[in-house]
């Protein structure tokens, strides 16, 4: 997957990020913003869409947000200051646009109160359920449970584990401290685990 390959390089640090997107930066240096955005679209378009779709939970809205991301990239790329990788910069735009879209569309939906999650370690659900199910079942359950996270928590979890950004990179995107994001993810994971266990228990009954 070219998207994942680029992600690997772009997440690996400044040196590797440079090699992943040298062609984009070269196009920028030539003043070829259109060419640069074209490269970004072919390289990161699928990943940006996936992130947007997982964030907003709706195909049409995800199309719209993805389009906004690349239109904004076209508008702002000339002022990219190269302090992060282009992938980090692009996903930073995607994060902002997706959160804006959620706010505007009122698609927050039902969610767990992450800051006061009660009884995360209560064993009402089948704690061994995770060990019994197949990976495919686990992924399906997880996709449903992600919908129940607050948008900021969902974004942090997706960026960290699905898109494989480092906390330092996520901090650049979000304007928050790495530790804050790490704590947000740490609070979200038990919520996801509990949600999956609950769903599996409910289905088994």
């Amino acid at each position: 997957m070219p998207d994942r390959a680029a992600a690997t390089a772009a997440s690996a640090g400044p040196e590797a990020a440079g090699s992943a997107d040298d062609d984009v930066l070269a196009a920028l240096d030539r003043g070829d913003v259109r060419g640069a955005v074209g490269l970004l679209m072919s390289r990161y378009g699928a990943g940006v869409y996936r992130y947007c779709r997982q964030m907003v939970g709706d195909d049409v809205l995800a199309d719209d947000v993805q389009q906004q991301v690349f239109v904004q990239a076209f508008r702002d790329l000339a002022r990219f200051e190269r302090r992060s990788s282009l992938r980090t910069w692009l996903f930073g735009i995607a994060r902002h646009r997706a959160l804006d879209a959620i706010k505007i569309e009122g698609r927050r939906g039902r969610r767990f109160p992450l800051d006061e999650q009660p009884g995360v370690e209560d064993e009402a659900a089948d704690a061994s359920a995770l060990e019994k199910i197949s990976q495919a079942e686990m992924v399906r359950a997880l996709e449903r449970c992600l919908e129940e996270l607050a948008p900021a928590a969902k974004s942090a979890v997706l960026l960290r584990f699905r898109e494989e950004f480092r906390y330092e990179e996520m901090a650049i995107m979000a304007g928050e401290k790495p530790g804050t994001l790490q704590a947000r993810v740490a609070r979200a994971l038990p919520v996801l685990r509990k949600c999956i266990e609950r769903r599996l228990t409910d289905e088994a009954v």
Binding site: R50, Q135, V139, L142, R162, L192, I196
Partner: peptide, 9 residues
């Protein structure tokens, strides 16, 4: 869980 998260979407 982390492994499954990598496979979502």
């Amino acid at each position: 869980l982390r492994q499954a998260l990598r496979e979502t979407g």
